[in-house]
């Protein structure tokens, strides 16, 4: 797996979490993992799935504005 293994799931972005989830699915797909490892992968997959779902539910559009070459928060109707 990747270096994100050691990283706490809570800190993963949606893209990171989903990419790892895809990796887990294909690892399980190969069917060559020992059962113990497969179970651990499955559990992590479930945590990643939950994390992704939470991120989707909580997602709020964040808009920034370029001012020259720096990014600033953008308030609508400004």
């Amino acid at each position: 797996m990747s270096k994100t293994d050691s990283k706490s799931i809570e800190k993963l972005t949606y893209e990171e979490a989903y990419a790892e989830l895809e990796g887990i699915v294909s690892a399980l797909e190969s069917g060559e993992k020992p059962l113990e490892e497969a179970l651990a992968l499955f559990e992590r997959g479930q945590l990643l799935t939950r994390h992704c779902a939470e991120l989707l539910d909580k997602a709020e559009l964040k808009v920034q504005k370029l001012s020259g070459e720096t990014l600033e928060p953008f308030q609508e109707g400004e």
Partner: peptide, 26 residues
């Protein structure tokens, strides 16, 4: 975002299926 959620649900089901068949195999 709805597509992504559907994908997640599908993925979770797939994951469980994979594990089940793996356990069966074992």
């Amino acid at each position: 975002v709805l597509d992504l959620k559907a994908r997640l649900v599908q993925n979770a089901g797939y994951l469980a299926d994979r594990l089940k068949s793996l356990i069966q195999l074992k």
